[in-house]
């Protein structure tokens, strides 16, 4: 099986996000970047499929220079090679122009299945995979928590989460895009021998010219969405602790719920 994994490098989930004074983005100084946690499930699943059925795992990522670190991490986990869409023209993309660029990089590749996280934890849009599947003219299954690829590699059965904790079972013909959710697997750690081997694995860098796209199809220019302003949610105030006898407490509570919280 030729397995592709779409992966994004995002700020570490432990990062304390600070909005820049102009409100146009976040302060990136000193931020540590990691592989998008949902993409880790995708990499792990890809490696498991490869271990079972043979083949290759290729990591496809769009991002600035630093994104090679996340690609190398996936290579250290066991992926075979990387494709890195890297060009200033790709900066400021929305979900659509990201999918456009990814599709351009993926089209010349041979693939039987594409995996990726169900969303990236930075912008949280959860739209790239659907747009990408559309552009590649393949199916996609979202929020997948279990995946079984048929022995002939022509189809797969995926379980996806639906509301109320229920599961939906979907049989899909391949190639398809599988958007991975927590619970699908337990991602492995990059081993030290794996880290040292990753250095020698190939990463194909694709700039605008190589992608075959024009500058106004990608990045900020190709985006259908304009971000007008970034702001943080208001800080949560400390809770109130009521004291007194149960009867008094109940009266106080009802009063507060009615007058302050306006909940009843």
């Amino acid at each position: 099986m030729d397995i592709l994994v779409c992966m994004k490098q995002v700020p570490d989930t432990e990062t304390k996000i600070v909005i820049n004074p102009e409100g146009t983005g976040i302060v990136t100084d000193g931020i540590k970047y990691v592989m998008n946690p949902y993409d880790e499930f995708a990499v792990e699943e890809a490696l498991k499929i490869k271990e079972k059925m043979g083949g290759t795992v290729t990591i496809v990522s769009m991002g600035p220079q630093r994104a090679t670190e996340a690609i190398r991490t996936a290579l250290a986990m066991g992926a075979d090679k990387g494709v890195h869409l890297c060009d200033d023209a790709f900066e400021g993309a929305d979900s659509y122009s990201t999918a456009k660029a990814l599709a351009a990089a993926i089209k010349p590749l041979s693939y039987d299945i594409i995996l990726g996280g169900k969303q990236a934890v930075d912008h949280d849009n959860a739209q790239v995979y659907a747009a990408l599947a559309e552009l590649l003219d393949i199916s996609h299954v979202s929020i997948v928590t279990q995946l079984d690829v048929a022995e002939d590699g022509k189809s797969a059965v995926a379980q996806r989460e639906v509301e109320g904790g229920a599961r939906e079972v979907i049989e899909v013909s391949l190639p398809a895009f599988i958007a991975c959710q927590k619970g699908l697997n337990e991602p492995r750690y990059a081993s030290l021998p794996g880290i040292m081997k990753a250095k020698k694995k190939p990463i194909d860098v694709i700039d605008l010219a190589k992608s075959g796209l024009s500058a106004d199809e990608v990045g900020e220019k190709g985006a259908k969405l304009k971000i007008r302003k970034f702001f943080l949610p208001p800080e949560r105030e400390a809770g109130k602790i009521l004291e007194g006898e149960p009867e008094e407490l109940a009266t106080q509570l009802v009063k507060l719920l009615r007058e302050e919280a306006k909940a009843i």
Binding site: E69, R72, T73, Y189, A190, L192, I195, A198
Partner: peptide
């Protein structure tokens, strides 16, 4: 270097 950084991440997660 970068490899040190990856090792750091592995041990940190572990």
């Amino acid at each position: 270097n970068e490899e040190h950084g990856m090792l750091r991440q592995t041990v940190k997660d572990f």
